[in-house]
Design a binder for these strands. Structure first.
Length: 113
DNA sequence: AACCTGACGAAGA
DNA sequence: TTCTTCGCCAGGT
């Protein structure tokens, strides 16, 4: 049984356009749970393989890559750079430039109905 | 079954 | 401004 929240999160992530990124908190909020950023991380962790999600387009609210290991961070940075995302620090993304300005979460929701 | 953990984040101290 | 606490909740131990 997958919760509504989870479904929206997955749809949202799959909808992130190339060279754009979203933050955990932003996703959680859009999915209807402003405090659910943490769930977003485990959804990502557990569903990336199943749904083939662009996990690398999801970062934390500071615009940072927050993975555990260096090699993983480098992987993500590489993937983002390849798409044209700009960095303004070692693992610091230029949010003003790359944040996905999602305007219609409602559209995604409607598509699902 | 109880307890811990997590690729997070906002709010309080 | 940095540090701690608490909310969220599925999955693993």
């Amino acid at each position: 049984m997958v919760s509504e929240f989870t479904k929206i999160v997955i749809d949202l992530i799959q909808s992130i356009p190339k060279s754009k990124v979203l933050t955990y908190g932003r996703i959680a909020k859009l999915a209807g749970n402003p405090q659910g950023a943490r769930q977003v991380s485990w959804i990502l962790h557990s569903s990336t393989k199943k749904y083939n999600l662009p996990w690398h387009r999801v970062i934390n609210s500071k615009g940072n890559i927050s993975l555990k290991t260096e090699s993983e961070k480098q992987d993500q940075k590489f993937l983002l750079l390849k798409e044209g995302v700009k960095f303004c620090g070692e693992y610091q993304i230029d949010l003003a430039n790359s944040m996905w300005n999602i305007e219609s979460i409602d559209k995604i929701k409607e598509d699902k109905k």
